[in-house]
Every structure is written in structure tokens, then in C-alpha cells.
Amino acid sequence: MSAINLLIDIVLLTMLVFTTIAIVRSRSLFAIVMLSGIYSLLSANIFVVLDAVDVAFTEAAVGAGISTVLMLATIGITGYEQKKRRSISRITPLIVVFITGAVLVYGTLDMPAFTNPSNPVHEHVAPRFIEQSPTEVGIPNMVTSVLASYRGYDTMGEVIVVFAALIGVLSLLGIREKKTDPVYTEPPPRPILQVMAKFMIPFIILFALYVQFHGDFGPGGGFQAGVIFSVAIILYTLTFSQQDAMDLVPPWVLKRLAALGVLIYGGTGVVSLLKGGNFLDYNVLAHDPIHGQHYGILIIEFGVGLTVACVMILIFFAFISRGDKNP
């Protein structure tokens, strides 16, 4: 790592430390949520410095975007205040934390140096991925090829976890459509914001599609694209009203599409089974293994993007429809 990169890394990490101290010390929940947004943005910058562009992309979209909005929706319901309390002393947690931290620091003294190419992490399977994936899978972005092809099972598990979280949120909160509510009133128009949002949303959606289908060649993929797409809808909901957004993308459609995404992923595996390969072995999908890999990755990334986008939008709908009910 060059000297200037190391300097940027250290400065950003130090800023992260100060942000964390501010989060721990602050009493205002609103400030805590905003600071955790800043925390996510800083960590996304650090990921860029550490060469993890795909991860930085995801962290910026998820951490600074959706996570902050969901936290704000929640504290809008639970209230901004944090009461003081003196029943438990702070000494015991501090002692526990210091002892654990000291043990961990003692453990790092045996760790190999940061960025050393001969670290054990880089000795095992990583060289095979780096050397073979451009010829075996045939796409330049190794993160996508490892994500969708070599570790396809793992990613399928993650998609199912996201889907299961959606089921949990919907069964806890549910989505209340506002049409039947007699006391519901239209929010006041916000012309500047609405014009701006109308202008921006097509570009955000275009960018999401670019990220989705260009993920084989540059940073991007289904997870990031899904999150960016849902950000477009969330922007629409925030500037217009919940009713407008629910007319645009009805929740019952989203529920079916989220399930469809998981089905596309699993179905690709079943198709490859039927064609005589292993589960999620894309080599058999076309006459040529490389083409098969291309098709397979494109299809399952589409499934991932569909599920993630629908899940994020539905979770957001669930939170805000609950919020308006209890002002």
C-alpha cells in the first residue's frame, strides 16, 4: 500500500473512532441515528481505500441510505427522548469491555502485518479464484464470479435470510393501506422537493439497472442494484405520500415479486440439475461452459436484485404505515 493510501486509511479510521465516541456519549437519539449514517459513509470510504469497491458500494447504499431511514421511522414512533437512569453503574460494563479489549489486543500481537501478501489469508483458496476465475467463469469482476458462481450456495442462503427477515417484519408489523382510514389527510405539497425528486428518480432507476447488468464487468451486482432501486421508491414515498407510492408499486405485487426472485435463484439451480450438472452448476446451461456461466450469473443476479429491492421497499412500507398510525 502506498504511503498516501496508508495516510488516508489512518485518517479515516481515526475519524471513525471519533464518530464512535460521539455515538456512545450522545444522549439524543436523533443525533445517534445521524451519526451512525456518518459512520456508514466513513466506513464506505475506508472500504474504497482498502480496494473493496463492491463492498463500499453496498455499505454506502445500505448503511447511509436505508438503515438511516428505517431508524428515523422507528424513533418517530418510539420518541426521541432517552431517559436518564442511575440504577446500574457504568463501572461493571467498562471493566468487562476493557478486559475483553485487552485480551483482543494481546491476540493481535501475533497477527501477521497488515497488507503483507504472504499472510495466511491469501494462501488458501484466494489464488485459485484470482487466477482461474477470468478463464473459468469468463467475467472480469472476481467478486461477482465468486459470489454468484463459486459460492452460489452461500449467496442463495443469504437471499433466503433476507426473504425470511421480510416475512418476520410483515408478520410483526403488517402493511396498512391508507385508503380505508377516514382520518387520513393528504400531506401538504412540497413543490421544490417534488420537482427535484421527479427529475432524479428516473436517473436513480437507470443507475440501478446499470449496476445490475454491468456487475459482471465493474463493481456492482444484484444486491447493490436492488438497494439502489428501492432507494428510488423510498425517495418517491418521502417526497410524495405513502398512498401515491402504494398506488405506484402495490404491496401485493411486491410480495409476489420478492418470492419470485428467490424462486428464480433456486429454479436456476434446479434447471442445471435437470440438465445433468450439479445444483447451481451453470456450465451445463448452454452449449459452451463460459456462455453457461454468463447466463447463470445474469439470471441469478436478476433474482437477487428483484428480491432485495422488493424486500427493502416492503420493509420500508411496513415501518411508515405503522408510523402514521401512532403519531
Binding site: R190, I192, L193, M196, F199, M200
Partner: peptide
């Protein structure tokens, strides 16, 4: 240039 003034506007409004 498009988003930053609008964000400030929304905040202050």
C-alpha cells in the same frame, strides 16, 4: 449541484 441545495432547502423548511 442538484441535490445539495435541495437537501439544504428541505432541512431548513
Amino acid at each position: 449541484w442538484l441535490t445539495s441545495p435541495v437537501a439544504s432547502h428541505a432541512l431548513i423548511r
